[in-house]
Amino acid sequence: MARLAAFIVMLIPGLMAAGGIKFMRDTLFGKLISPFPFLWVQFVVGIILFVLGFGFFAGFLLHRDRKNGKVAPRFQKK
């Protein structure tokens, strides 16, 4: 059950990051998606989604590895 919960926790930010990449890619190819009025707004939302999704994913992995003692000494909590 814990593995399923961890999978769901990792799935949501992964989808956010993937959506952010898609928005940025569509902006580079000049395709405007309907909820966005301008291409630059679409690109900014894409960057925000990517950074939030990737940051949550990285933070989750760092927290898990700290708990299991698998990080380098410089990443240990003081």
Rank of each mutant, 00 (worst) to 15 (best):
M1R: 14
A2S: 13
A2Y: 13
A2C: 07
R3Q: 12
R3W: 09
L4K: 15
L4C: 07
A5K: 14
A6H: 13
F7Y: 10
I8S: 06
I8H: 03
V9E: 08
V9K: 11
M10V: 08
M10N: 11
L11G: 01
P13C: 02
P13Q: 04
P13K: 04
G14P: 02
G14E: 00
A18L: 15
G19A: 06
I21M: 08
K22C: 07
F23M: 13
F23E: 07
M24T: 04
M24D: 00
D26N: 15
D26E: 15
T27K: 07
L28F: 15
L28V: 14
F29G: 07
G30L: 09
K31D: 08
L32K: 13
L32A: 01
I33G: 00
I33P: 01
I33T: 10
S34C: 01
S34W: 09
S34Q: 09
S34G: 03
S34I: 09
P35M: 01
P35C: 01
P35W: 01
F36G: 02
F36H: 06
F36I: 02
P37D: 09
P37T: 12
F38M: 12
W40F: 14
W40A: 08
W40P: 08
V41E: 06
V41K: 06
Q42M: 00
F43K: 00
V44H: 00
V44K: 01
V45N: 01
G46K: 04
G46T: 03
I47P: 00
I48R: 08
I48T: 10
L49G: 01
L49A: 11
L49T: 04
L49Q: 08
L49M: 12
F50V: 05
V51G: 03
L52Q: 05
G53A: 02
G53N: 03
F54P: 01
F54K: 09
F54C: 05
F54W: 12
G55F: 03
F57Q: 11
A58G: 03
G59V: 03
G59M: 11
F60S: 14
F60H: 14
L61E: 11
L61R: 12
L61S: 09
L61P: 04
H63T: 11
R64P: 04
D65N: 14
D65F: 15
R66L: 10
R66H: 06
K67S: 08
G69R: 07
K70A: 08
V71A: 00
P73S: 06
R74F: 15
R74V: 13
F75D: 10
F75G: 01
K77N: 11
K77D: 10
K77P: 07
K78W: 11
K78G: 09
